[in-house]
Computed example of a mutant assay.
Amino acid sequence: MNIGLTGGIACGKSIVAAMLADRGAFIVDADLIAREVVEPGSVGLERIVQHFGRDMLLPDGSLHRQELGKRIFADPKEREVLDGILHPLIIAEISRRMDHFAADHPDKLVVADVPLLYESGMEELFEEVMVVYAPPSLQTERLMERNGLTREEAEQRITSQMSIGEKAKRADILIHNDGTLEQTERQIADFWRQKGLS
């Protein structure tokens, strides 16, 4: 079985992914893949430089993530361009890794951890989609604390994604992560039991 795992920024998706991994699930991490497809010498990085310019590179030839982040969070059109460059590369690699795990371990759960799953139109890749939910006010507080952002910067990043309320409506499986870790763990245990996973 495979599922897509998503949620809003700072909703606690990584915590849920770790809980699933602890139970034996294989995790395909879209954020990790997103870093790999822009490594020096990659097609992804070359295309970013072609569109955004050489000031997107650090002196060592790697991607200047902060500079790119400033550009795309300030201009939704530029974000769309970046998504158009990266999403096909990321989706192809997610699919390849999921197929690999499914072929080698057909009895195990394969989880693709994808922050922008709905925004990328990837639902059809998965049997079900699990959404990790936290209310927007808590998202903002967590993001400010975690990334050292101002409230305005945190809200700008949150609103650049589909709202967590909309993601929750679309979910096949909804995990509430606005309480204790034990409460979140109980929901994962219930999911595991309902699916008859070993």
Rank of each mutant, 00 (worst) to 15 (best):
64 H>E: 09
64 H>R: 09
108 K>G: 07
121 G>R: 13
78 E>H: 12
22 D>L: 06
36 E>N: 06
35 R>P: 12
107 D>N: 11
27 I>N: 09
153 E>A: 15
71 R>Y: 02
156 Q>T: 12
143 L>V: 01
41 G>W: 12
3 I>F: 06
129 V>A: 13
71 R>A: 02
98 M>W: 00
13 K>T: 03
89 L>V: 03
149 L>D: 03
162 M>S: 07
197 L>M: 14
149 L>Q: 04
198 S>T: 13
173 I>S: 08
173 I>M: 03
136 P>Y: 01
188 I>W: 10
68 L>Q: 08
62 S>I: 01
136 P>Q: 11
21 A>F: 10
96 R>C: 06
90 I>T: 03
22 D>A: 15
138 L>V: 14
191 F>S: 10
109 L>F: 11
13 K>V: 02
9 I>C: 05
188 I>P: 12
34 A>C: 08
148 G>T: 01
131 V>M: 07
49 V>M: 08
185 E>A: 12
142 R>C: 10
117 L>I: 13
165 G>N: 04
186 R>D: 07
59 P>H: 00
150 T>H: 08
147 N>W: 00
153 E>W: 02
59 P>I: 00
122 M>H: 07
147 N>A: 12
146 R>D: 11
46 E>L: 02
109 L>M: 10
141 E>D: 10
171 A>F: 05
87 H>F: 14
50 Q>N: 11
71 R>I: 06
8 G>A: 01
182 E>G: 14
80 E>N: 09
55 D>W: 00
77 K>R: 14
61 G>H: 04
146 R>F: 02
29 D>V: 08
99 D>L: 12
112 A>R: 13
150 T>A: 01
53 G>Y: 08
185 E>V: 00
4 G>D: 08
176 H>Y: 12
43 V>F: 06
172 D>T: 04
96 R>K: 15
27 I>M: 09
94 I>H: 07
54 R>Y: 05
110 V>S: 08
68 L>G: 03
33 I>K: 13
61 G>N: 06
77 K>E: 09
12 G>D: 09
7 G>F: 09
107 D>T: 12
180 T>F: 03
85 I>S: 10
25 A>K: 15
100 H>Q: 15
136 P>M: 03
2 N>I: 07
143 L>H: 09
66 Q>D: 14
76 P>F: 05
5 L>E: 02
1 M>T: 08
3 I>V: 13
178 D>T: 03
91 I>S: 06
80 E>F: 01
52 F>W: 11
165 G>E: 12
170 R>S: 14
7 G>N: 06
66 Q>N: 09
161 Q>L: 03
34 A>T: 05
19 M>H: 01
191 F>K: 13
197 L>S: 07
155 E>K: 10
156 Q>L: 09
187 Q>I: 02
46 E>A: 15
154 A>H: 09
165 G>I: 00
191 F>I: 06
